[in-house]
């Protein structure tokens, strides 16, 4: 792994909500083109860890290092950092008052100040890439959940991020719509996108993940290659978790 550039490093990260200590001394490295899958029960802290990586949650202590740069939320321009770290949400969070294309080009237009013609051209290419070229002028309420999530992926990609975070991207979907989103993510991984994915889709973790990280009670219990984690987990708690869901 040594030759790949380091994209995210989390060091001794602690996060509390009031009295609730959600993340405890988390250390994690994500290298270029890695697909890191965070698994664990609800409340284990995986979503919070993900949200700390683009500063939607601010750590209490420890370091979050993005592409070699230690980010201090007080001094760094988080708006700039977030342009490099895209995020896809469980509930899509598409902008309901904007058409699909306008969702995708909103940030390129207003944040990157791209020319409209250029933004539209790129936006349409991205929509074609996620298989929704024909939906450009439709409003989000006319889309299925799977289509919404693919638009959300395109919207995030429109900022040309170096890293993509996925927070349970298929958990709000009807079972028959999960596949289309996972295959979009799979092709993104094939292109070499660095991805951190919180998911309950063990099939995806096994097939696409380079690393699987099992979290329990705010700590990383075990990190390894999918085959090792799924076939011969070292920790008892990992075994218990996997046998409870597989």
């Amino acid at each position: 792994m040594g030759e790949k550039a380091e994209m995210i490093r989390v060091e001794k990260l602690n996060k509390s909500f009031g009295d609730l200590h959600v993340l405890k001394d988390i250390d994690l490295e994500v290298n270029e083109s890695d697909v890191v899958v965070l698994i664990g029960a609800s409340g284990s802290g995986k979503s919070t860890l993900l949200r700390c990586m683009n500063f939607l949650e601010i750590k209490n202590s420890g370091n979050v290092i993005i592409e070699g740069e230690t980010i201090d939320p007080k001094n760094n321009d988080l708006n700039k950092v977030r342009q490099r770290v895209g995020m896809v949400f469980q509930h899509f969070n598409l902008f309901p008052h904007k058409s699909v294309l306008d969702n995708v080009i909103e940030a390129p237009l207003t944040v990157k100040k791209l020319k409209r013609a250029d933004a539209v051209k790129e936006g349409k290419e991205l929509l074609a890439k996620v298989g929704l070229a024909d939906k450009a002028d439709v409003y989000p309420n006319k889309l299925s959940g799977g289509q919404k999530q693919r638009v959300a992926i395109a919207r995030s990609l429109a900022m040309k991020p170096d890293i993509m975070l996925f927070d349970e991207p298929t958990s709000a979907l009807d079972p028959e719509l999960v596949g289309e989103v996972l295959s979009t993510m799979k092709s993104l991984a094939k292109e070499g996108m660095t991805m951190v994915v919180v998911t309950h889709e063990m099939g995806f973790a096994r097939e696409v993940g380079d690393w699987v990280v099992y979290m329990h009670d705010g700590r990383i219990v075990e990190k390894g290659h999918p085959n090792d984690i799924f076939n011969e987990p070292k920790e008892q708690r990992t075994q218990d978790f996997l046998s409870s869901i597989l």
């Binding site: 700039k80 995020m87 969070n93 909103e106 944040v111 995030s156 900022m159």
Partner: peptide, 9 residues
């Protein structure tokens, strides 16, 4: 959150 995650202030 979606807006902020895209780099909007």
């Amino acid at each position: 959150e979606a807006g902020r995650s895209l780099g909007m202030s």
